[in-house]
Nucleic acid binder design. Structure first.
Length: 463
RNA sequence: GGCGGCGUGGCCGAGUGGUUAGGCAGGGGCCUGCAAAGCCCCGUACUCCGGUUCGAAUCCGGACGCCGCCUCCA
């Protein structure tokens, strides 16, 4: 049984599934108006890891994550770049998927675009207007929050205690400052759709509720996103579902934010590092390892130092993969436990790691166990028990693979010149001609190889 | 102001009322012709002040500092 923290209850509880054996999860995706940053990287990694783990455990996961392709910021961007919103979306969505691929984040089962669901949104808003749950004012249609039972469930505090009124514009016309836009009337030149209640575009909260219910159906299992979406975004999604008489998510789960110098990384603060930059300057697996080493609900500092730290840790994992010539797992495919076998120490490791991951995805504990196992696998091999060592090493590889972290055993293609130098060095070493052996090693290093001796002779690999 | 959370060794970052988190960096050793890789050992931390307890970094109270949400945000 998988247990997960629920943001509404404020405690870890069993993940109760609508359909036994199947997980339906919705993860709020990005608005594609800019380069994806480390914050986006964290939520995609966290929920990718969750999805992969559920899958590994034998659950059939339907993972839906949207692309918001119509929003104020996209319009602002198109004006700034003097091109259409469609072009802006095409550019930044392309960069989004490129970044996801680099991070090894598996593609969602479905990645709906908001603009493909506008008719359904119009239908929903019309129904709200018919029932007087929504009302029209000069700049659009708003939901009357007072008509929603339990509004404030995710805010976690009495509604009258929420500080409101910081924003002056349009507030006067709203029945309550908490009421939110379902539909925004078009301004000249903006992309718009024709609706019975006016020409305009949907509000962000309406996009997500329509897509999640549309693709996953009522009473779906798990709704996820960054902690900063809890209120008001998720509250407002839920409000619409409830107001429409639908049953919304059974569980809510939120990941902690990426911090930079003690502050949240965000577009509005402008303190972000793009994933594109990260992929160019580091091994993207390092970020996944960093995410795995902290709990998904904790804030996480990501700096060049912590990334470099993780890269060095990764080198030890890769060394294990080389030593045991382990196959490269994960990547595009989601590993499933039943496709792998776990023997002796490996079976014990799987049991331990499985227990901590099933309990609210305690990945830091899992990683600690895996690093302990790594030392044990090497020691066991040093002691000459090759088969036990191999069973353990394979389990480590499979479990990291289950979490989407591929260990790389590839040495790189060895050209004939380098191969010749290797052969000559082994000859020199055989003849105990250390000067020549060292000279040849230096030549290999100059050619960019890392040179290591092993029981079978000189091994070279790319750093 | 309301609600929520945090303050851990050089750095990152877990965790539990008493027993080693883990990683990185650093020191020592083994192995190696040397180096690399690998293995072993070592730093003995928990913001401060009270309290509960045989025993608290872990529970309670208070102080200080910090962060998130309440406004677009993953």
């Amino acid at each position: 049984m998988i247990r997960l923290y629920d943001s509404v209850d404020g405690e870890v509880r069993d993940l109760s599934l609508r359909d036994p054996g199947r997980v339906s999860m919705y993860v709020c995706g990005p608005t594609v108006d800019n380069l994806p940053h480390l914050g986006h990287g964290r939520f995609t990694l966290v929920w990718d890891i969750a999805r992969r783990w559920f899958t590994f455990r034998g659950l059939d996961v339907n993972y839906v994550s949207n692309i918001t392709d119509i929003e104020d910021k996209i319009i602002a961007r198109s004006l700034e770049e003097d091109r259409s919103t469609a072009e802006v979306v095409a550019t930044y969505e392309g960069l989004w998927w490129q970044a996801m691929d680099a991070l090894g984040v598996a593609r969602p089962s479905a990645a709906p675009h908001a603009t493909d669901y506008v008719p359904e949104m119009i239908e929903l808003i019309s129904a709200f207007l018919d029932d007087d749950i929504a009302y029209t004012i000069s700049d659009g249609v708003y939901l009357d929050v007072s008509r929603v039972p339990d509004y404030g469930l995710l805010a976690g505090q009495p509604l009258d205690s929420l500080r409101v009124g910081d924003r002056v514009e349009a507030v006067d016309e709203k029945r309550s400052p908490l009421d939110f836009a379902l539909w925004k009337n078009a301004k000249p030149g903006e992309p718009s759709w024709l609706a019975p209640f006016g020409e305009g575009r949907p509000g962000w909260h309406t996009e997500c509720v329509v897509m999640s219910l549309g693709l996953l159906g009522d009473d779906f299992d798990l709704h996820c996103g960054g902690l900063d979406l809890k209120f008001p975004h998720h509250e407002n999604e839920r409000a619409q579902a409830v107001a429409a008489g639908r049953v919304f998510a059974r569980h809510w789960s939120h990941n902690g934010l990426v911090m930079v110098g003690g502050e949240k990384m965000s577009k509005s603060l402008g303190n972000f590092t793009s994933l594109t930059h990260l992929a160019e300057t580091s091994d993207p697996r390092a970020y996944r390892l960093l995410v795995l080493r902290s709990h998904y609900r904790s804030p996480l500092e990501v700096t060049t130092d912590t990334i470099a730290d993780a890269e060095r840790a990764l080198a030890r994992l890769d060394a294990l993969a080389r030593r045991f010539e382990l196959p490269v797992l994960a990547g595009d495919t989601l590993e499933v436990a039943s496709n792998h076998r776990f023997a002796d120490d490996g079976a014990a490791l799987y049991a331990e790691v499985g227990a901590v991951l099933d309990d609210d995805l305690k990945t830091p504990l899992a990683v600690a166990l895996l690093f302990d196992a790594l030392a044990a696998a090497n020691s066991t091999a040093d002691a000459g028990d090759a088969s036990r060592a191999r069973n353990l090493a394979e389990a480590i590889n499979v479990l990291f693979g289950a979490l989407g972290l591929s260990l790389h055993s590839r040495e790189g293609d060895v050209d004939s010149v380098s191969a010749d130098l290797v052969a000559r060095r082994d000859d020199a070493r055989g003849a105990k001609d250390w000067a020549e052996a060292d000279r040849l090693r230096n030549e290999l290093v100059t050619l960019g190889w890392v040179v290591e001796d092993s029981s079978t002779g000189t091994l070279i690999r790319r750093p």
